[in-house]
Design a protein around this nucleic acid. Structure first.
Length: 285
DNA sequence: GTGATTTGACCGCT
DNA sequence: AGCGGTCAAATCAC
């Protein structure tokens, strides 16, 4: 049963989070709140979310329902609902490498046309809606949504839906103006007024992506997934403590119920070996 | 002139 | 009823 598997996955995730915390700070108790233990606090939040999720799935209305993140309940509801199948969907996180490129996003190889923009409740930045430029010419139904992140304006969540059926993907040597002009200086991608003066991340960090999927087969996956599978969650929730939280420089991202998530290709405080030891693809996916 | 973007309105889902 | 997603007319850029 899927339900049993879900509980097993959550239990495994909880156990792995425990292991990760012990690995980072073996002597640190969960009640400690030293300024340097931010990562531990985040792990504690992760653990709390696992506990909440498990309590929900166990059918427990016993105490603490009000603490359950709403979207976890939503996910549960989604699982049992007779909701129609949605289009294949998966997400990426794109980090803008430097200040000079704020407002521009890397070419993803396809030509997109913007067809809408919406202010999203709870988000400082509007969400842009794009569809394949060849939608009408070739009936390509691929769309994507671009959402700038509240907690890290240098990053964007790009959600892709549908598979490209067009045969005209653009190549990287195509002039950018022809590729995604809407992303060059799109107002949505610029800092909001109140943040114009804020220093943005200066490092020319390698662009890194987080990929997750929903009803997506391997043929839909992007070809440039970084080789560092890290983490995954069933939760799709802006309020989730997982989302965008940092663990000693590592960003955890949980979008959709995908089974492939990638993280930064390099870390300063945690080696990939350490992470993969605890967060192997097989463990989380 | 053509194609892309903007933006208010509309629609469907929860 | 509120929200997210899409439509389409107006506007803009080349």
């Amino acid at each position: 049963m899927e339900f049993v598997n879900l509980i097993q996955e959550l239990n495994q995730g909880r156990n792995l989070a425990h292991q990760l915390r012990d690995h980072l700070h073996p002597s640190l108790s969960s009640s400690s709140s030293s300024p340097s233990s931010n990562g531990i606090l985040l792990i504690d939040q992760i653990l709390r979310s696992y506990e909440n999720a498990l309590s929900v799935l166990a059918g427990g209305s016993s105490g603490g329902d009000e603490e359950i993140p709403p979207t976890i309940a939503a996910v549960k509801h989604r699982d049992v609902s007779k909701k129609r199948k949605v289009m294949a969907k998966w997400s990426e996180l794109v980090k803008v490498p430097s200040v000079s490129t704020i407002g521009a996003l890397p070419d993803d190889g396809f030509s997109w046309r913007k067809y809408g923009q919406k202010d999203i409740l709870g988000s400082k930045f509007p969400r842009g809606y794009f569809r394949c430029s060849h939608r009408f010419a070739q009936g390509c139904s691929a769309t994507k949504q671009v959402q700038r992140l509240d907690n890290d304006p240098s990053m964007y969540e790009i959600t892709y839906r549908g598979k490209h059926t067009c045969n005209k993907p653009l190549h990287s040597n195509t002039p950018k103006q022809e590729q995604t002009p809407q992303l060059q200086q799109h107002p949505m991608l610029m800092p909001p007024k109140q943040e114009q003066e804020e220093p943005l991340q200066q490092q020319d960090a390698p662009l890194y992506l987080t990929v997750s999927s929903d009803n997506v087969d391997d043929s839909l996956r992007r070809p440039f997934c970084p080789p560092s599978p890290l983490f995954r969650s069933e939760v799709e929730d802006d309020q989730s403590p997982f989302r965008g939280s940092e663990l000693e420089g590592l960003e955890f991202w949980c979008i959709g119920d995908g089974d492939l998530v990638s993280g930064p290709s390099s870390f300063t405080n945690i080696s990939m070996g350490d992470l993969e030891e605890y967060c192997s693809l097989e463990s989380f996916c």
